[in-house]
Design a binder for these strands. Sequence first.
DNA 1: CCTTATTGATAGTATTACCATCGCAGTAAC
DNA 2: GTTACTGCGATGGTAATACTATCAATAAGG
Lengths: 227, 227
Amino acid sequence: MASIATIQINVNEKLFLRNPEHTELGRNIISNSIILIEKIGFENFTFKKLAAEIKSTEASIYRYFENKHKLLIYLVSWYWSWMEYQVDFQTNNIEDPEKKLDIVIDILTQTSRFDPQFLHINEDALYRIVIDESAKAYLTKDVDADNKEGFFLGYKSLCRKLAGFVIEMKPDFKYPRGLMSTLIEASHHQKFFSEHLPSLTEVSESEGGSGEVSEYLRYLIFQLLKN
Amino acid sequence: MASIATIQINVNEKLFLRNPEHTELGRNIISNSIILIEKIGFENFTFKKLAAEIKSTEASIYRYFENKHKLLIYLVSWYWSWMEYQVDFQTNNIEDPEKKLDIVIDILTQTSRFDPQFLHINEDALYRIVIDESAKAYLTKDVDADNKEGFFLGYKSLCRKLAGFVIEMKPDFKYPRGLMSTLIEASHHQKFFSEHLPSLTEVSESEGGSGEVSEYLRYLIFQLLKN
DNA sequence: CCTTATTGATAGTATTACCATCGCAGTAAC
DNA sequence: GTTACTGCGATGGTAATACTATCAATAAGG
């Protein structure tokens, strides 16, 4: 757990103009954009407001990111990359694919996610951003162009990995990737609905733990994958 | 089928300043906003551009809708209301809840949707908007306020109706509404993925009919609801 | 024919989403 | 100790967006 080796979270280099991990200002941009987007929402978020937060200037932030949409994709990509690392780490040495999927559902739904390896990233706030805003990263007229640039490789890679577990569990299953993308999306919108539009689901989120969303998802997945 | 009685599609009155159904300009706004949003995407859509399309002015459009977000919610609400009508109509006199859910999946996924009762509404374009943009109607910091105003009643009402079919089919099922909101959301994102991020799903959309998305959804739902 | 409602025309404001330029401070190089 | 480079802050500017206000023309209703 407390090893010294550092893992790297890879995000597509085309997402930024200057790598924010390499400088103090860059890390500050990342760190505070997470807090600010979570707080005021992506549509109300501007580079000007962020600049004020970190006592820098709009122009300086534009040196790192072309626009706020690229920044959002950057954050979401980081998240997917980090999630895949979590999955790798926590399913390592586990044989049983059912157990692996069980762990995946835990990882997808757990609310408290602090990772001491990335001190400038507030994973809990980032998780909220993923729930509330991540769909906006791809629901644009630029999806196809962005996809060609490889901006969604993180999501795809995670989805492929989870689909692998499904295949291990049930080799003849027809929709491993479809089911896993449904699982991931459902983990977000069921949580969102439970908090904001509760009549759209029976699931409710009172507890702090991984709660009822995970129960629902577990039921869904294993009901389908058990013969 | 070709009855003279007109049905009404209800949308929350708070969504508009002046009822667009009541005037020529209003219907023009609706009709062309659907075309234009579908064409250029919601973020690029402005009232100014719409005004140019319909040879009116920005100010005139603002007399109908407070802002473009309310217009989006209006369109999406109209869609839900219309979908619920479709479900009522097409499941009428059908006893078997399984058959009813089967019809629901058809309705949710069919691509060609022209309804001669609403000549000023291009249902096909509206369906594309729902797939690409409808999540943006609720994924905002105003969800709770908007929800209090009743802006999402259409979605909720449809979800409740479909959940009723689930209960008829399997009275002890634990997540009827959760499953139906998952079904609806999945019908959108699986279609979106199949067209734009195909490695996130096995489902592909070559055909014009209700295609592979509906097959996947049918598998999902009935696998879960059959004991 | 008069009243009222509806629209078009015009103008104006605040904010957003950028881009360009300049100069300074720190560092590293010779 | 000068040179050169990088990163950043400061300033200023532009075009577009998201509205609001005012007024005149006109169509519709009584």
